[in-house]
Amino acid sequence: MPNRVILLVEDNPSDEALTLRALKKHQVINEVVVARDGVEALDYIFATGAHAGRGAIPLPEVVLLDLKLPKVDGLEVLRRIRADARTRLLPVIMLTSSLEERDVVASYACGANSYVRKPVDFIEFVEAIRQLGLYWLVLNTPAPLGAEP
């Protein structure tokens, strides 16, 4: 089974670059698809808009979702993912700068699988990404695709 993509939803180019660099540094071989706002992310996941007619490609292995996004924010993206039977079990990791309690609580309330704060220290950031990759891409057994709970 080919490795499924990682969907990185990030509007900040430097964060995007750094995240990709961190993933690369840790030999994450999965293709990383970057969506730069909430709409793009949703279009990718649900094959709508720009991605309409893309056909039935597999869902991402994992979604790394920033909270603060243009157009549709991260929480709304998450809400829609969880609202759709097809994507209800899709692992979504909040990857964001904020450590505001309300963000953390709201994320988990909307069904985030994990909440990771992006540290300022790049080395720490890389470490966080490494652990994320290790966990979600290696250790974690994802729910079978299309499974109904």
């Binding site: 430097s14 750094l18 992006k118 300022v120 790049f122």
Partner: peptide, 22 residues
């Protein structure tokens, strides 16, 4: 403001730090 600071003020720092490291 605080929310914004929380989210946005740190991102450039992280960028500076990250690219310095790069």
């Amino acid at each position: 403001f605080c929310y914004s600071v929380s989210h946005d003020l740190r991102a450039p720092l992280r960028g500076i730090d990250g690219f310095s490291q790069a």
